[in-house]
Every structure is written in structure tokens, then in C-alpha cells.
Design a binder for these strands. Structure first.
Lengths: 195, 195, 195, 195
DNA sequence: GATGAATGAGTGTTCATTCAT
DNA sequence: CATGAATGAACACTCATTCAT
């Protein structure tokens, strides 16, 4: 990658980051291109220089987010840990990521409303990749006899729902430490699979 | 209530129902008043005859939904059943309702973005009423020694998240019967509290 | 006039009166038929029973107002007074009327914007009748040698402008009594014609 | 001021001028943003690029008008003329301005109906500044013994009313020359203060 | 006579998008 | 590369008006 391309890439990430923050706060429809631009002290036109349109910006943001999450999961897969610990780590990483970047919740809900057909294909593939990795953690645990032999897909969906919902009720001014809550959540959820 | 008032009330409910369906499909911001009206073969003006504005329509819809859910839960409370069965029934009723009326998911996410301060007060109170009733079902089970003594609030939030997420992945053309899925979901979730 | 017609006439005047008050406060365009109706605890439909449309209501109100003013002036004409006193009385009556019924000021400004062609004819005729009567009071004074021989039309327009402007600055909570102000205004204005 | 800012300023004034003309003709409420835009062969959107909303456009127009008038009056104050001539010049300038830019009459009537609280503060202050300057011209004449010692505020209000009313009856196709009429008006009005 | 319900044309406003410079 | 200016398609909302009952 040339220096120029790197610079471009860096600028794009800046814009994506700014967009993600504002969309997380205000939601996709309430966020204007102006909001995103003015936060970075640039103009609307500049955003259009780097992205085709609002949808494209959203798409690239979402894609980046998912790719990062997948990388995370892959990394966890490679670690030499007990299946229960691996799954627990995956869940905690998921929630951690979610709370840092509250963004995206809106988009996980009916993504077909936000993306074009082509984009949707890619997004859904990434979703599948992510859930696949999650499923494997469950399946491995079952095969190892660590977990009950439940339906891995239903279980995974329960996990995703419960974890994603965290942004609704997590109170960062609450008494408990964040890590304590995430740990508790993970433990409770692991109860489902416990023998 | 006079005949005329009843008719008005009926019409309002018709509009609310139409609105709920379209908002469930397309989301609040993509739904126009025209969409809602033309589905009922009436005009925009008529919608405005019954509701102050788009927000008011949304508010009244949401309020009605929550009130119905609360009634449901209250009814379950009065039934002479084992705590485990009560909680299971409550969960199944929640999910059943959700799948019938997919609406509302979007709104549960950051309701402060959709409602005025006054409206928000009312909505949040109804939320509290609902979760309170759910919590009680958990607490009673714990006190009766049927459930583990987990944190009822965290457990309840796991339940709500997992259940609300169902609309994301439930496939009504899938192999399994709806009732079978709901039962399975409830059973898995009850695992968390199982001794 | 039959009893029924009288009742109708009375109701029309009620509506006209209500309309005049609100239009005086809020202006023609900011006043809705609903405003006028609800002040009288009747419905929009009822207003349309008595008047063809908003314009018609406005027209009839304005017409009534002008007719009353003309009657006033005619009455002053018949009184056995010194020309200066007659003119002064006419001015004070004009201002008195204006302050009671602040209405109409907006309409005197470019009436062609408010009325249909036919209506305009009638309104303008009434305007002419009124100014004619005012002019005569000036002319008589000049002929009697009481006033300077100024251009009566220009003088009359000065008088009308100065008087109609009163609603802009008259402060009914001010120190001076209303009658005192009106007297002072009239005296000052008479200075113009004074020899 | 940069070239670009100057261009922007120029464009804003163009729009203001267009708006003032149409509002003078049709009144504020009958004037649509489309009217204003299409007169300049631009689109509605462009108007909104330069002004926040219709009210803002109105406010800025009115403000400009008043500022110009105040400048005029200040200039007259500095001239080495007899008090009577100064006042006469001020009156003629006022009327001249009014006839050129018929606009604004509607707004002087109950400005609180057109402007926001903040805007109103500014507008009223400008009104006060203007009338203050007018009052001074009267007071100076009185102190110099040129005028009768009448109440300067009442006199000023008579002057303003009579002058502003001119737009109602001035007929630019009439026999008399404009300057002749304005001179006559001023002379008649000065009669009031004449000893 | 009176009303509640319904209408639809009109208008202000927003905002993603384009493009010449 | 970046920007300011301009656009126009949408959309929420208002309100005079109509009409069946």
C-alpha cells in the first residue's frame, strides 16, 4: 500500500469512527452527514469524497466492526483453554466490544432495511462467519462432554440476544464494576449449557 | 362510553394497528404517515384527526402494547401454578405476543430518542411495571426454593434480551413448530435458574 | 323579520363578534375557524352553517364595522355643534371605536388581498362613504372660515393614519386616562387646520 | 471580509430584497418560500441554505430595513440645518424610504406575532433607537423655541402613524409629483408644532 | 340546525446528493 | 483534495372546506 493509499485509509477510518459514535448516540436516521462531518471539522463534501453515499459509509462501518469481532473470536479459538473458558472469554469479549462501541445494535435489527442487496450479502456472510465461530465453541464443548447436548443454534441465539440487550440496561454509574457484571452475565448464560 | 366514542376508539385502534404493522416492517423513520393511512384506505388528514402527530401515534401504540403485556402478566400471576410453570408461561406469552406483533423492538432501544419527556415518563413507568411483575415470578421461585438464588435483575435482563431477540432469527417457515421453539427457548432459559 | 330570522341574525352577530376579537389578537391568517368556533363552544360546522367561508365571515365582520362607523359619523353630522367640535368628536369616536375593537387594522391595509372582487367593491364603497363624511367635516370648517384652507384629502389621510396608528402605541396601563389621550390627540391634530 | 464572504453577503441581500418585495405585495402569510425563490430563479433549498427559516428571513430583512433608517436619521442629525428643516428632512426621508420599499408596514403592526422573543428584543431596540432619534429632533426644536412645547412622544406617534399610512393612499399615477406630496405632508404635520 | 368525521391541497422544512472551482 | 453552493425529492403537518347523519 502506497503512502497515499495509507493516508486515505487512515482518513476513512477517522470518518468511520466519527460516524459510528454519532450513529450509536442518535441512531442512523437522526444522524446527518453534516453531524458526522462537523464533528471532524471537515465538510460534507469531504465525506462524499471518501464514501459513495450514506449507505456506503454505514456499510463500511458495519463491515469493519464485524471483521474486528471475527478476528477477536478467531484469536480466542486459537488459545489453549478449556472449552468453558473459551466460550466465556468469547462472550465477555463480545459484550465488552458492544459496550465500548454501542453502535450497531440498531443495525443488527433487520439489516435488510439498511443495506443494498449486494451489501447485505456481504454483511450476512460476516454474520454467519461470526455465529459459526460462536457455534463451534458451543459444539466443541458439547463434544468434549463439558456441556449438555442442547441445540447449539438456539443456544447461540439466546446468548446473542441476552448479550446484545446489555446495552439497554447496563448502567456505567451503577455499583458493580463492569468486569463483574460481564463475568456474572457469562456465568449465568453458561448455566444453560451446564450439566 | 357513548356509541360515538366507541366508534372513535375503534378507529383509533385500527390506525394504531396499521401503524404498528408498518413500523414493525420498515422502522419508525422509514414509515410515513401516508404509508399508515393508505394501508387503511384513508388519507393523511384522517390520521391527524385522531392523533396529534406522528410521535403521539407512536406513543399511544407503544402504550397500548405495554398495557396489554402487563395485563397478560397479571393474569398469569393469579393462576394457581407451580412457580416454574408460571415463569415459563410468562416467557412463552411474552414471545408469542412479540412474534404476533413484531413491532416495538426498535422502540425499546433508546426510547428517549422517540418520546417526549412526558411521554417517556409514562412509558418508563410501564416498563418498570412489566419488569417488576417478571422479577416477582423469579423471586417467588427463589423464595420457594425452586430456583437458585441468582440476582433476579440480571436474570430478568438476560431473559428479556434473549426473548426479544427472537424476532431476529425466528423463521416462521422453518421446520419446527412455533410452540415447539417457544417451549424450547423457555426451557433453556429456565436452565439458568435451575438448581 | 321573523323570529327565526332574528335568531339567525343574532347568532351570526355572535360569531362575528367572536371572530373580530380573535382576529384582532392574532391576525387573520393565524386565526383558524376552529379558534373562532371553540371560543363560542360551537363546532366548525356551525360556523359554516352561518357563513359561506372564512372570507365571507371576514367580509361580513368588516362590513358591519364600517356600517357602524358610518352611522356614528352621520349622527355627529346632525348634531348642532361648532365645526371644530364636530370634527373633534368624530376623531374621538373613531379612536374610541378602534381601541375597543382593535380589529380591522390589518384589513385596512391592502384590503384587495383579503376580499373577492365583488366584496371589495362594497368595502371600498363603504370606505369612501366614511372618508366622504370625514372630508365634509373638514370642508365645512374651511368654508365657515374656522379652518385653514388646506387640501382636505391630504389632511384627512393624515388624520386617519395618525388615529389608526394609535393601536400600536396606546398603553392601557399607562398613566394617562384614555379620554385624556384621545382629547390630546384630537387637539394636536386640529392644530394642523388651525388658523 | 473575504471574497467568498462578500459573495454570500451579496446573495443574502438579494434574497432579502426579493422577499421584501413579495411580502410588501402579498403579505407575510401569503408569501411562500417558493415565491421568494422562484422570483430569483433559485430553489427553495437555496433560500434555506442562507436562512434558517422563514422567520429568520423576515427578521433579517426587517433588521436591515431598520438599520438603514437609523443611519439615515443619524446622518440628518449631523447636518447643519435649522431644527424645522431637519425634522422636515427626516420626515421626507422616512416617507421616501417607505414608498420605495413598501414592505414592513404589516410587520410594524404587532411585531410580537412575527418574531421570536430574542428577535423581538432586537427589533424593539431598533424601534426605540429610531423613535429616540425622531424625538430628539422634536425636542431640540422645542428647546430652541422653534416649536410649541407639546408632548414629544404623542407628537412623534402622530407623525409616524400619518407617515406610515401614506402607503395606503399614495397613488403613484396621481397628478401630483411624489416630492410635492411628501413636502405637503411634512408641512401639514409641522403645523402641529408650529407656534 | 348542528356535528363529527374526513379530505386534500398547500407549505415549511430537512437532508442526501451533486458539482464547479 | 476539499469546499461552498445549490438542488430537489420527501415528508410532517395545517386547515379551510365538505357532507352524511
Amino acid at each position: 500500500m502506497s503512502l497515499r493509499e495509507e493516508k486515505t485509509e487512515k482518513k476513512k477510518k477517522e470518518i468511520i469512527h466519527s460516524a459510528m459514535q454519532i450513529i450509536a448516540e442518535k441512531g442512523y436516521y437522526r444522524t446527518t452527514i453534516d453531524d458526522i462531518a462537523s464533528k471532524l471539522l471537515i465538510t460534507k463534501g469531504t465525506v462524499y469524497y471518501y464514501f459513495q453515499d450514506k449507505q456506503d459509509l454505514l456499510f463500511q462501518s458495519h463491515q469493519l466492526l464485524l471483521q474486528n469481532s471475527i478476528e477477536n473470536l478467531k484469536h480466542i479459538h486459537t488459545q489453549p483453554l478449556h472449552p468453558r473458558e473459551k466460550l466465556k472469554n468469547a462472550m465477555i469479549a463480545h459484550m465488552d466490544h458492544l459496550l465500548d462501541d454501542q453502535y450497531g445494535f440498531e443495525l443488527m435489527h433487520k439489516p435488510e432495511q439498511f443495506f443494498s442487496h449486494q451489501q447485505l450479502e456481504i454483511i450476512l456472510q460476516l454474520h454467519r462467519d461470526y455465529t459459526e465461530l460462536l457455534d463451534q465453541l458451543i459444539v466443541i464443548g458439547i463434544e468434549d462432554g463439558v456441556f449438555q447436548a442442547l441445540d447449539s443454534k438456539v443456544t447461540r441465539n439466546i446468548y446473542l440476544g441476552a448479550m446484545n440487550w446489555l446495552t439497554q440496561w447496563y448502567d456505567n454509574k451503577g455499583k458493580k464494576e463492569k468486569q463483574e457484571i460481564l463475568d456474572q452475565m457469562a456465568e449465568y448464560l453458561l448455566n444453560i449449557l451446564a450439566k
